[in-house]
């Protein structure tokens, strides 16, 4: 994707030169080839380090809420990120006029763990060309197919193209197939109750309460999270079953109608806990019941922040 990177760089360079923005949130190269980092560009000289490839695994919208509202922010957004930004605009976390969204149609984020599984831990170089990914492991080049390495949530992606971006770099990609995620959820729903609970239990009990899922999520921006409350205390703070289950249930539920299925939570988890099966269920219900998808525009409030008298038919008396 070298052309895209050049285009991105030129775009950011112009933004910074024109002083149209105070900071541009993007990715930069790091020492480890598989771990590009979120970066904050304020000078053109720093753009030497700019990186954009399939390994940029974080949701950059996460950093938006750290800035005062009058900061002019440029942000590189892929499909899910742009929707997260929109959802944050709806929730009045940053004014639209102080944002410049540089949209990049996304071919999907690669799962580092899938790469390491196929090769080994110590990868010394990485490059990608279209559908081909090549890594250097112990001095040998290994070629891999991009489609085999996509993160699970990207395999189910419906909207790869940025929504509401100010500029779009590269050609728009075809929309994803919404039946894939629906089928996955329906398959889970079709399991019997005990199996569903057993799965949930198995995933939740590995939790170490590091809250990486929370911190990696752009929509988790509360100053004080419910698990941090001391009076009243809502959940147990140890790694007991009741504590970790409560965390997983409520964390996911707080995302209802706000989650954009970016999968940043799952990628951040150090214990490989599956989480998107929870939020995907909520997203599916939001779509079916309220015809709502989070972040598809920057003014429709999520279903739980609004009400409708038509709902009265649903009151079972």
């Amino acid at each position: 994707m070298p052309e895209l990177k050049t285009e991105l760089r030129n775009n950011i360079e112009q933004l910074l030169n024109d002083q149209a923005v105070d900071v541009v949130i993007a990715f930069k190269k790091a020492d480890l080839p598989l771990r590009p980092q979120p970066a904050f560009f304020r000078n053109v000289e720093e753009l030497e380090d700019l990186e954009y490839n399939g390994l940029c695994q974080n949701n950059l919208a996460n950093y938006l809420t750290r800035y005062p509202h009058d900061t002019k922010i440029g942000i590189v957004v892929r499909g899910c990120e742009s929707r997260s930004v929109n959802a944050l605009i709806v929730e009045k976390q940053h004014p639209r006029e102080n944002l410049y969204m540089i949209g990049v149609p996304c071919q999907g984020i690669l799962d580092i763990r899938k790469i390491i599984n196929k090769t080994g831990e110590d990868i010394t170089d990485y490059s990608e060309d279209g559908d081909q990914v090549s890594v250097i492991f112990k001095g040998n080049e290994i070629k891999l197919q991009r489609s085999d390495l996509l993160h699970d949530s990207c395999l189910r992606c419906v909207h790869p193209n940025p929504v509401n971006a100010d500029v779009l770099l590269g050609d728009p990609l075809p929309e994803g197939d919404p039946t894939i995620v629906r089928q996955a959820i329906e398959e889970f729903e079709a399991l019997d109750r005990d199996e569903r609970y057993a799965w949930f239990q198995k995933e939740a009990e590995r939790c170490i309460r590091c809250y990486a899922c929370r911190e990696a999520c752009p929509m988790c921006y509360c100053t004080e999270c419910f698990v941090d409350h001391t009076t009243p205390r809502w959940t147990e703070s140890d790694i007991s079953q009741a504590g970790t289950q409560a965390w997983h249930i409520i964390r996911a539920f707080h995302q209802a109608g706000r989650c954009t299925s970016c999968g940043a939570c799952e990628r951040a988890c150090p214990m490989d806990i599956k989480m998107t099966y929870l939020t995907d269920k909520l997203n599916k219900d939001m779509l079916e019941v309220y015809q709502f998808e989070a972040g598809m525009d920057d003014n429709t409030p999520p279903p739980f922040a609004s009400f409708n008298l038509d709902d009265k038919n649903r009151f079972v008396i």
Binding site: F188, R193, Y197, I249, P303, F304, D311
Partner: peptide
């Protein structure tokens, strides 16, 4: 109550999804 219905209805769907019987909660 309209806001409550939306939230609780979905919350129960969600609990049902991970195995809790929905019929244990009644409105």
């Amino acid at each position: 109550n309209l806001r409550a219905l939306r939230q609780h209805d979905e919350f129960l769907n969600f609990l049902d999804y991970i195995g809790y019987e929905r019929s244990r909660v009644r409105f």
